[in-house]
Simulated assay, not measured.
Amino acid sequence: MNTTVAATSLQEARATFDAVFAEFAEGAGERDLSHENPIDLVRALTDAGFGRLRVPVELGGFGVDLPTLFELLAQAGEADSNVPQILRGHFTTVEILRHTEDQETAAYWLRKVAAGAVLGNAQSELNGAPFETTTKVESVDGQHLVSGTKFYSTGSLYADYIRVAVADDKGNRRFSVVPARHPGVAHLDDWDGIGQRLTGSGTTVFDRVPVEDHGELGRYKEDLRSLNSFVQLVHLANLTGIARSLVAETAAVVQGRSRTSLHALSDKATQDPDVLGVVGRLYAHRFTADAVLRKVSEALESAETADTPEAFAQAYIETSAAQVALIDIVLEAANLAFHAGGSSTARERAHLDRHWRNARTLASHNPVIYKPRVIGDYVINGTGPVNGYDRGRASAAADN
């Protein structure tokens, strides 16, 4: 972990971000084929200050607003859509720390993030009931130790610390922070999804791993209603980045073609009206994604300012509507791109297939099939969306 961050201003940091994004983009397709984890590039990005974007200024961060954060995540997703996914758990934890009632713990960890620390996530387990965890934290000779197995532990392979969902000996659920490089932590990197292959989203095994100082994060405030929308917006920013990349990469394919099809109206691909129409439709999808992302990120920022249950409910409904819309248009764009270059676009060296696979994988998180009903129930009956905290609390109460 780098303990000093060179950039002293957001403007300076953004120039470095752009340079690292360019490096990500240059090798994204080949890394996907060879399964080369971009560990050094992720570290270069976080060393430049990317991880401290939402850390308050007084604690050493840049203190950016939500629209700025999600725009930068979209830029990261355009370069390599693994990046926002890798850092999703990091930014989620920062958001929780910004709202926690334990100000001492929050300040401790936010200062570490400002110094370059990266936080990973290990929350879900395979084959378990919702909100259930078999991973335990136990007290041995006055020290808290974590043992268990997690899957979907996205970003932990790249992290300095991991926020782990655990249960104590009384069955109470909480989050404990442990060192990611401790000998008792095994990163198996066995994620076998069709997309987002380099996110370190597979199994992590913990064997009596000590909890860090200030490592018992407990619960965040009951009125943190923004978190459900926040975690979904990371995916929407990533999908927007994919839409942008599809325009750029498809345009490059067309510009590099030396021939067209039998029925083409031009001998040059760059003058073929049907091919130009494909690229035009891709641009329209990108334009829509950009506008929707900006709209919902501004809505969540407004809800944070209003700080009322009604405002957060409205922001969640708008985020859900954006999820329904963006998934459809980005998947359509990822399919449409193949029309611009004939069979050559299906070759592995074109790397266009990764955009559909990555978008399809992102679309499978927080399943979109439920969102139209949630939206409709709100519009017709005024029924507010269920908050993740409330759902988890109800589950814990039922178990006890």
Rank of each mutant, 00 (worst) to 15 (best):
D102S: 05
D40N: 08
T260Y: 00
A167S: 11
R259C: 11
S261E: 11
A13S: 10
A76G: 04
L53D: 01
T345L: 14
E304T: 05
V247R: 06
E304W: 14
A291C: 08
V379Q: 07
S302M: 13
Q196H: 07
L293K: 01
D272C: 04
L66G: 03
A28E: 09
A106S: 10
P367S: 05
L239I: 09
E298K: 09
V5Q: 07
E23I: 07
Y152N: 09
T203F: 02
L282E: 01
H144V: 13
K221L: 15
R111E: 11
S156Y: 03
H187K: 07
V166S: 02
Y152L: 13
A251K: 14
E249Y: 09
E304N: 11
I194T: 13
A186H: 12
L97Y: 00
S226G: 13
L352M: 12
A167N: 08
D190H: 08
A129P: 00
R354D: 03
A129H: 11
Q103L: 13
Y108F: 09
A306Y: 06
L53G: 01
L41R: 04
A333G: 01
L265E: 06
I380S: 08
S258N: 14
L300W: 05
H35G: 07
S343N: 15
T4N: 10
A180Y: 04
D189P: 00
T319D: 01
V324Q: 08
Y161M: 03
S320T: 12
P385R: 06
G128V: 12
R354T: 05
P130S: 10
V185S: 02
E222Q: 11
A248I: 11
L69M: 07
L265C: 09
N335M: 14
G256T: 10
D274V: 12
R360L: 13
G116F: 01
T149Y: 02
V324D: 06
H355G: 04
I194A: 14
K221F: 10
N228A: 15
D399A: 15
F91H: 10
D169R: 06
V166G: 01
R111S: 08
T135D: 10
A114K: 04
V296R: 02
L352T: 03
S343E: 15
D353G: 15
R391Y: 15
F175K: 03
T133I: 07
L326G: 04
R219E: 15
D32M: 05
A122M: 06
V254F: 11
R173D: 06
H285P: 05
